[in-house]
Amino acid sequence: MRKIAVQINGRVVEGEVEPRLLLGDFIRDNAGLTGTHFGCEHGVCGACTVQLDGEPVRSCLMFAVQAHGRRIATVEGMAPSATELHPLQQAFHESHALQCGFCTPGILMTMEAFLRAEPDPSPERIRAALAGNLCRCTGYQNIVTGVRLAADRMK
């Protein structure tokens, strides 16, 4: 067992964990932030994507011990308040970019970082950036629209 302290959405979460504990499990169980979902646990579906020091990573492919002293951002930290949404969340809402919503947190974490790096992306670039997140409901069309709408508003 190891003692770790991870900063998640600005709050330090401490825990004593086995080295094998996946980061995603730590976020979900120890920090109680269940917005990060496991869809495959082998790094393909992207549902568990979180940001590690600002960069999207798969939380099923990292051990919690590796996040000791690092900064993690999850979907719960996106909205500015209980009554407002982040522009990307708002654009998803308005574009009908989610159906069941299971993949949505991972997609938001990927796309938020993407728009920071590429604030004015073409639909083709959005599709390329989105390809590491599977969505079984939407056919992606409205997600691309939503990301583009957010980009327009965040300029």
């Binding site: 992207g46 994507t49 590690l52 960069e55 999207p56 990573v57 590491g132």
Partner: peptide, 9 residues
């Protein structure tokens, strides 16, 4: 190589 999340790590 993979996707952005994979390349980041």
């Amino acid at each position: 190589v993979g996707h952005s999340q994979i390349r980041n790590r």
